[in-house]
C-alpha cells in the first residue's frame, strides 16, 4: 500500500454485521438506517435484489447484501436493518444483520486487501480496519453497486 503523506485524515465508519463478520461503509455514504419493512418483490431481477420500497415517495431497490457478497444469508431478526446507502448517485437499501456502531478511525488505519477475509467478497473490498482484536472489512460501495456488473449477470 502506498505511504500516506501529509496530514492523516480521520474517517467515520458505520459498522454492521453479516453473519459472523463485521463490515463497514463510510458514514458519508449512508443516508439512513431503517427497520425491516414490507418489500415489494421485483421479478426478473438478480437473486440478490430483494425488491423495492417506498422511501418517502422515492422508490429504491433493496438488496440482500449477504447474497450480493456470496455469503450465507442470515435469519431476519429484530436486529435486521435496511441501510440506505448512496454511491455514484445510486441510492440502494442493503439488508444487514445488525448495525452496531459508528467508528472513528485514522485514514492510515485502513490496510490493503488482506488474505484472511472471506474470499468470495474480496472483489468488493476497499480495505480492512484492525481495531483491537476486531477485523472490520471496509466495503467498496461503487463495486457492490456496480451497474456494469449487474447488467452482465444473467437473470
Amino acid at each position: 500500500m502506498a505511504e500516506e503523506t501529509g496530514t492523516i485524515e480521520e474517517i467515520q465508519l458505520v459498522v454492521f454485521s453479516l453473519g459472523r463478520e463485521e463490515f463497514a461503509v463510510e458514514v458519508t455514504q449512508v443516508r439512513e438506517i431503517m427497520r425491516m419493512e414490507e418489500i415489494t418483490r421485483m421479478p426478473k431481477s438478480p437473486s440478490f435484489v430483494e425488491g423495492i420500497i417506498n422511501l418517502r415517495g422515492q422508490i429504491i431497490a433493496v438488496i440482500d447484501l449477504a447474497k450480493r457478497l456470496n455469503l450465507d444469508s442470515g435469519e431476519r431478526t429484530a436486529e435486521t436493518r435496511i441501510m440506505v446507502v448512496e454511491a455514484e448517485e445510486i441510492r440502494v437499501g442493503m439488508i444487514v444483520d445488525a448495525v452496531s456502531e459508528v467508528l472513528r478511525v485514522a485514514g492510515d488505519a485502513i490496510e490493503g486487501t488482506p488474505t484472511v477475509a472471506a474470499e468470495a467478497s474480496v472483489a468488493y473490498l476497499r480495505g480492512v480496519v484492525k481495531q483491537d482484536s476486531r477485523l472490520i472489512i471496509l466495503l467498496d460501495l461503487t463495486k457492490v453497486l456496480s451497474l456494469e456488473e449487474i447488467s452482465r449477470l444473467n437473470f
Binding site: M42, P43, I52, N54, G57, A61, R91, I150
Partner: peptide, 27 residues
Amino acid sequence: ITSLDRFLKVIRGFGGATILGTGEVAL
C-alpha cells in the same frame, strides 16, 4: 408514475413504479 432509478432500470419489463393508497409499492 415514479420512475425507477438507474440501478433498477437495468431490469427490463417495468415502466416504473407507483405508490398505492395503502403506501404499498406496485410495479
